[in-house]
Design a protein around this nucleic acid. Structure first.
Lengths: 172, 172
DNA sequence: TGTACATCAGTGAACGCGCGTTCACTGATGTAC
DNA sequence: TGTACATCAGTGAACGCGCGTTCACTGATGTAC
């Protein structure tokens, strides 16, 4: 028997659902992610989504998981600390609500300690420790996160500061 | 005529509404702040609140404003950079959802550029620049925010790190 | 090639829920003469 | 001290809304003989 190379329909649908959910996320945060609205957008009835996600929470959790994976994938090609730092900031700026989903309390009732999520979160850190020791890695992570999240919220722009120069200062 | 020393009833009610709203905020973020539920908690009808707040948005905005003021008041007694940094972290850890209200995208449709809010936000920064020059102040702010917000979300605890020692490293 | 059956994606109706907000109102309190 | 009036905090009913989720079902597709 050959392995089936065609993507299964279930995966396609799941991907479509997530795509729309991501758009809602970018427009209004986790609170804006609504199953009924997603179904409407996809031209399908509300209950249809329950074939693919147990419930709303499962969908949101899947978004978190994907975001961790996507972030790690974006950091993977880094060759040194500089390129890592640059990639980290750029990923965050390109999709702010996704970044917030990882690092701000995303929604009421969210449990960030699910093993699969913890493992997914670890991957980025593992890439960073290729370039610096572990203690320094956590420090840099804190600093980068501080800068990036303030920049995302527009705190530097409103002060007339150059974010790029500041970023170097902060992690430096 | 004597000045009226008694607090006006309107202020008392507004304070009570905010008190309940804060409790909701701590328990489930801005999405959990609901006028009807607040009214119920206060033993009053829903529409009654509209005497004191134009609408839900106005209430949330008032919470943000108060939080900025309260933070500045907590930082005010600082005598040097060390005590400032300590006060900043402690304020945030004591009321995480309030801290998030200031530094994460709080709710869909929120406008952080209202002049009164911008002014309130500035006050903390003005205290910090008593101890360091302005460039360093922004850097320190970024670093402190990075550490504090990761600590709030439990990212260090789950890694078995000592947050206090780490904080010194990060802002150092 | 045809028939009988099982699988299963998706439907439509319905549920209860709580929300924000408007509305016309009641009833108590304060003010003016 | 009493009466007429204005103010205004709070009420109760009602609105439309969209949500998450369950349910019994239809109808197409795939499988076995």
């Amino acid at each position: 028997m050959l392995e089936t190379l065609t993507t299964e329909r279930g995966d396609q649908v799941r991907a479509a659902v997530k795509r729309v959910a991501l758009a809602q996320l970018e427009s209004g945060g986790p609170a804006a992610v609504a199953l009924n609205a997603i179904a409407r957008e996809l031209g399908v009835s509300g209950p249809a989504l329950y074939r693919y996600f147990k419930n709303r929470d499962a969908l949101l959790t899947a978004l978190v998981f994907d975001a961790y994976e996507d972030l790690a994938a974006a950091l993977e090609p880094s060759t040194d600390l500089e390129s890592f730092a640059r990639a980290y900031r750029e990923w965050a700026l390109a999709q702010p609500h996704r970044y917030r989903l990882l690092y701000s309390a995303p929604w009421p009732g969210y449990d960030p300690h699910q093993p699969s999520l913890v493992a997914a979160a670890k991957r980025s850190m593992e890439i960073l420790v290729r370039f610096v020791d572990e203690e320094r890695a956590v420090t840099l992570w804190s600093r980068a996160h501080g800068h990036v999240s303030l920049e995302i919220e527009g705190n530097f722009a409103s002060m007339g500061l150059d974010p790029e120069a500041l970023y170097a200062q902060v992690i430096g």
